[in-house]
Design a protein around this nucleic acid. Structure first.
Lengths: 162, 162
DNA sequence: TATTGTTATACTCTATAACTATA
DNA sequence: TATAGTTATAGAGTATAACAATA
């Protein structure tokens, strides 16, 4: 019981401290492309063109936030907003060639930093961390819309609601 | 080569996305105690009383940031600043009884959330994630003072510069 | 002179709310 | 009416720089 609590408390502490690593990563990135913008570029590179709503889901942030990042990226010519033939309210977001080059640059810088900093890590260890973080994010899923007073997920244990 | 790059790029992406989990955690915390303050309380609880400089090292943020958090916590009576007999420039930061109660509350809330969200994780998996994150933070160590143009650590690989 | 903290200022990221245009 | 996206505003977290007091 107590052991489990300190295990989770420790996780909370570790997560809160990840910021230091993120700032270290941000420090080697180009000034014109802050972290938020970089995340958008990376997702468009990995998943291909998409609408703003979809991008917000993947980023797990409000659409207003994504909208601002997208505006920033469009101004710099890294992405373009194409008309969506299926829905005139929406636009398709796509990486430009210059944007792709920026993604390559970001990737190169991140790789260089991690290769130096994590030089005693095996590939397998990096993969394991990636997998655990991905699972953590997934399990937290769409917690965003849950109100304060009711932290209960749809099905806490098994068979709680017929 | 390319496999290694995407492995590290993936890590960069995962780290950038951890923010969503942190916000989920922040959502169940008391409004009067934001994440930065919670981190300070947790560290004082785990490590005992200390000076502001030491706290900043543990938080891996600038002393100016810690100073602000400490002021916030002192105003609310959660910590107290005692005179440091060894150095009149400095003060010893110590958790008050009310502060300790707050730490317990924070711990309880975090545990409750994680117990629900990570109900299919084994204790061992949580421990592994904690260990990997701790190692990641450690390896990033004091990167903060390194200038943009020279991302080289003292010894990148083995015997690279005589 | 160097170090410990504090304060003022600026920047990034985020959420909420109000709004426009379209479905 | 409901949904996709935009914009204005506010709040948290952080860094840099200038400053005070003490070492």
């Amino acid at each position: 019981m107590t052991a489990t609590r300190s295990r989770y408390t420790e996780l909370a502490r570790q997560l809160s401290a990840v910021g230091a690593v993120k700032r270290g990563l941000a420090r080697v990135m180009p000034t014109e492309c802050p972290a938020g913008s970089a995340a958008v570029l990376t997702l468009l590179d990995q998943h291909g063109e998409m609408r703003l709503g979809r991008l917000s889901e993947l980023l797990a942030v409000d659409t207003s936030v994504t909208s601002r990042h997208v505006a920033h990226l469009t101004e710099r010519g890294w992405i373009e907003r194409l008309p969506d033939p299926a829905d005139k309210r929406s636009r398709i977001l796509r990486l430009t060639p210059v944007g792709s080059a920026m993604v390559d640059d970001l990737s190169r810088r991140a790789t260089e930093l991690f290769a130096q900093t994590l030089d005693d890590w095996t590939d397998d260890e990096v993969d394991r961390l990636n997998a655990l973080l991905a699972r953590l994010r997934h399990d937290f899923g769409d917690r965003r819309d849950r109100p304060y007073g009711d932290p209960r997920p749809p099905a806490p244990t098994a068979g709680s609601r017929p």
